[in-house]
């Protein structure tokens, strides 16, 4: 069990890739889905100090190909701390530098709350859902 917790499992589903990072008793999974003009990332799980490096790696990988649009779907992220915010800000800076549209959608209440407290809701392009993210 302990050995399994240190491995990364990779599974391929059609056009999406799932990377599982186990850290202690919990995990962060990031689904990656290709779209016509870019990519959608959908992390699943809490994004805190232990797990934000996984999201950072996936965002960095996605940005390497300089897509026209990067959508971060947070519909399955119930919790995020400032290390998660820092990861998002890093991605924002890269997207601005490379003129990539970076859209964040489907915020859960606690995640929306931390963005509001940090006064970041107007810094990011935040929309309600994935449909809006694809049109933004």
């Amino acid at each position: 069990m302990r050995r399994c917790a240190r491995t990364h499992a990779v599974q391929v589903f059609k056009s999406s890739t799932t990377i599982t990072h186990m850290s202690g008793a919990t995990e962060l999974v990031v689904d990656v889905e290709a779209i016509s003009d870019g990519v959608i990332l959908r992390p699943k799980g809490d994004v805190d100090m232990a797990r934000s490096p996984v999201l950072r790696t996936k965002l960095t990988d996605a940005l390497k190909s300089k897509p026209a649009r990067l959508v971060l779907d947070l519909s399955e992220v119930p919790y995020m701390d400032s290390s998660g915010l820092a990861t998002l800000i890093e991605a924002l800076q890269t997207t601005r530098k490379n003129k990539i549209k970076f859209i964040v959608c489907n915020l859960m209440p606690r995640v929306r709350s931390i963005l509001e407290i940090a006064r970041l809701t107007t810094v990011f392009t935040v929309v309600e859902n994935r449909d809006e993210a694809l049109k933004a």
Binding site: L85, A86, I89, Q93, I114, I117, A118, R119, V123
Partner: peptide, 16 residues
Amino acid sequence: LDDIRPGGLGVHLIHS
């Protein structure tokens, strides 16, 4: 908070 950069938000959040 007007200084948009990664990091340094933790203490602000605790106070808030």
